[in-house]
Each structure stands twice: as structure tokens, then as C-alpha cells.
């Protein structure tokens, strides 16, 4: 309990992952879904860094985490741009109304 090991980080990461999935499933605001994705990516990063420290000890995990952060930033930029188009077309960013794009 007082000796922090790999499992502690894995459990924390699993919980954050599930909360991220829950966030993606329950929010209908497109930006809320984006925030859920950020949670999921963060949980993955916790895992990568924890494995890097508790198993390999090399920089590999850190580098993967850097790439994940980079991709998250890129993804957020594109997503916000898409949401702004979505908003200018429909005056809302409720994803349940995204099917109206078909018309």
C-alpha cells in the first residue's frame, strides 16, 4: 500500500480511461467529446511513462508520450476548426444533430 509500484499507476490509468470513455459517451456537446478524448489520451500517457520507469528504464516510453501529446494538440486544433464550421452551418455543436449534414 505504501510502496508505489507499476500496478498503482495502471489502476489509476484504467480509471481515467473509463472516465474518459464515459465522458465521450454522455456529452452531446462536441467539445465535451473532445475533452473526453483528451482524458483517454492522458490515461495512455500515464501507462507509457509508468512502464518506462518500472520496466524498461529507457527513454522509449517518454518519446511515445511526447508523440501522443503532440497528436492530441494537432487533433484538438483540427477538431475545433471542424466544430466551428459545424457551428456556422447549424448554429449548435450538438453532435446528435450532425446527421443533418447529409442534406
Amino acid at each position: 500500500m505504501f510502496e508505489i509500484g507499476l500496478n498503482h499507476y495502471l489502476v489509476l490509468s484504467a480509471l481515467v480511461f473509463s472516465l474518459g470513455v464515459l465522458c465521450m459517451a454522455t456529452k452531446r456537446n462536441a467539445i465535451g467529446i473532445l475533452i473526453g478524448v483528451e482524458l483517454v489520451l492522458n490515461s495512455a500517457n500515464i501507462n507509457l511513462v509508468a512502464f518506462s520507469k518500472y520496466s524498461a528504464g529507457a527513454a522509449d516510453g517518454h518519446i511515445f508520450a511526447v508523440f501522443v501529446i503532440l497528436l492530441a494538440a494537432a487533433e484538438a486544433a483540427i477538431a475545433i476548426a471542424i466544430f466551428m464550421n459545424f457551428y456556422s452551418a447549424l448554429r449548435t455543436i450538438d453532435v446528435d444533430r450532425g446527421d443533418e449534414l447529409r442534406n
Binding site: G5, L6, S52, K53, Y54, S55, G57
Partner: peptide, 14 residues
């Protein structure tokens, strides 16, 4: 079973 020992940090961290 995480192969390379889940007990503690093996090498100095990068």
C-alpha cells in the same frame, strides 16, 4: 505478468 519485473525501477530514469 509484465515480464521485466514490476517490483521497481530497473535502471536510472532517462
Amino acid at each position: 505478468d509484465w515480464r521485466p519485473s514490476a517490483e521497481g525501477p530497473l535502471a536510472a530514469s532517462p
